[in-house]
């Protein structure tokens, strides 16, 4: 495995601010300057992630388990760069494919084909690269002649098939998956499951968030248990899933 692919997270904290009054309007900002107690914009901060430390290298397949709101998706989004940590460091090196929300940036007025390019562009790919992948994506999505229709006429299954096909077309070095398992008919789900398995084998580092603990045990070789923004346990999949189900779920 190449040494060039890694994820290092050092003492990372992520705070979200919750505004009672979400965006302070200019008027209020001025008024509060003159008021003795500036109590208009009450801000409560909460720690979405606390003191996260991770050193992932090639071969690591890490599963994240935790209750809703434990910070699993937030951790993935921090690693992808969407949320910068308030303290600490995040270093990522390698070709990252984030399968966090498929179909980001789909424009319903545009055709499936146009959306392939738009979505690919948002994932940082070049025109040349997308041109060479275009045919493969269309074939995998099985959209056939529908590819040139605006996607607002697509069924949700077709929509999902297209999004999945674009997102998973390139073998990544780092694969970040948030609860993505393909939608569609049995035939497509079957094909997509195989594609996902291939992606898992071909990627050097995988991070997977899922509530399906069987899948986690099956696919990962290490599991982190997240609770209220903290990694409270870390170890082999079977043990961690048992711990999670016993200590936290119940």
């Amino acid at each position: 495995m190449s040494e060039n692919v890694y994820i290092d997270v050092e003492n990372a904290w992520l705070k979200f601010r919750i505004y009672k009054n979400r965006s302070p309007a200019l008027k209020e900002a001025i008024i509060s300057k003159f008021k003795p107690k500036p109590n208009i914009t009450e801000i409560t901060e909460f720690d979405a992630l606390k003191n996260i430390n991770l050193n992932l290298r090639g071969g690591d397949r890490v599963g994240l388990v935790g209750l809703n709101g434990a910070g699993k998706s937030t951790l993935l989004k921090m690693i992808v760069g969407i949320y910068p940590p308030k303290f600490g460091k995040v270093h990522v090196r390698g070709k990252v494919t984030p399968l966090i929300e498929l179909g980001t940036g789909f424009d319903v007025e545009l055709s499936g084909r146009e959306n392939i390019f738009l979505n690919g562009a948002l994932l940082g790919r070049s025109y040349k690269q997308m041109k060479s992948l275009e045919q493969e994506i269309i074939e995998f999505s099985e959209l056939g002649e529908f590819i040139d229709l605006p996607i607002k006429y697509y069924s949700s299954g077709m929509h999902g098939r297209l999004a999945f096909s674009i997102g998973t077309i390139v073998d990544p070095e780092i694969l970040i998956v948030d609860e993505i398992f393909a939608t569609g008919d049995a035939h497509f789900v079957n094909k997509a499951t195989n594609r996902m398995k291939a992606l898992f084998t071909n990627s050097q580092i995988v991070m997977l968030v899922s509530h399906d603990t069987d899948k986690i045990i099956d696919l990962c070789n290490r599991v982190l248990v997240l609770h209220k923004g903290e990694v409270i346990n870390d170890g082999s999949p079977k043990e961690m899933v048992d711990y999670y189900l016993k200590e936290i779920v119940n």
């Binding site: 760069g81 910068p84 940590p85 308030k86 460091k89 995040v90 990522v92 390698g94 990252v96 780092i174």
Partner: peptide, 9 residues
């Protein structure tokens, strides 16, 4: 993606 490197904020 290598730009995801984040400087301590």
């Amino acid at each position: 993606n290598s730009m995801v490197e984040i400087i301590p904020a």
